[in-house]
Design a binder for these strands. Sequence first.
DNA 1: TAAAACTATATTGCACACAATTTAATTTCA
DNA 2: TGAAATTAAATTGTGTGCAATATAGTTTTA
Lengths: 141, 141
Amino acid sequence: MATLKYNPLKLDNQICFPLYAASKEVVKRYKPFLDPLGLTYTQYITMMVLWEHKELTVSKIGEYLKLDTGTLTPMLKKMETAGLVTRERSKKDEREMNVKITPRGMALRKEALKVPERIGSCINLTVEEALQLKALLEKII
Amino acid sequence: MATLKYNPLKLDNQICFPLYAASKEVVKRYKPFLDPLGLTYTQYITMMVLWEHKELTVSKIGEYLKLDTGTLTPMLKKMETAGLVTRERSKKDEREMNVKITPRGMALRKEALKVPERIGSCINLTVEEALQLKALLEKII
DNA sequence: TAAAACTATATTGCACACAATTTAATTTCA
DNA sequence: TGAAATTAAATTGTGTGCAATATAGTTTTA
């Protein structure tokens, strides 16, 4: 009798691929809600940590978001140009760059408040499933 | 008594963020195993569908991987240069580009066979948790 | 205290991702 | 059947991501 061998290199047998595809898919679903705010997804999560903490160094932002300076520096410069943040060297330690949210950046929070619920209704998971997913993902990170 | 309001814009309350972070993290963990094969993560999943199907059009590859031509065309050209695939216009329909795996590309499969188990031991999930995660992610896609 | 080690950010180079547009080939249908 | 619609790739432009390196400031320590 022929035995059907398990193929470890089949796309369908991967855990990485649905993770990769779902992540891109969700970021894409944010786009129509973020475009009116003038934010990309990466800028949106950056604003999230700034709405909460008001002022942070580049490396602190990088710690929260798990992004490196090669990604953050150019993006923060754009956000500065857009008037959402200011960038200033720390007086205490000139190596540090303090990124501070502006009143305009703070004001954007009101408009962003609708985003999470709108996204929620775009993602086909129950609250329980979402919590379960979150727990599993956090175990990986 | 003060009521602590739920903050929908807190990074910790997002489902999208752990998804985004975990996806990047897993792709990063593949790097040390894929570097010796001369493959990037995107090229690796492309090889997966080609190991299975041998010959596909660009759009079929895009369907499997959920990637568009702006991503695939330049990457497939690099893979052609690397001798992993050939690219040829379809005789039946000149609009289609047939991408075919080469013997060298096929031979790479043997070396790649160790990758999935090595990755498995890098990811801190039980088999049950991984299957659960996969099911939840596929519900999103 | 001055050289060495370390730290924070910036820069460079490479590889995606995708929206929007273009080009070329095929199919539809008036 | 021939113009219009559709389809498949390629191209262009913008925005990440990250490894590796560079630069400048701070701390450690011989």
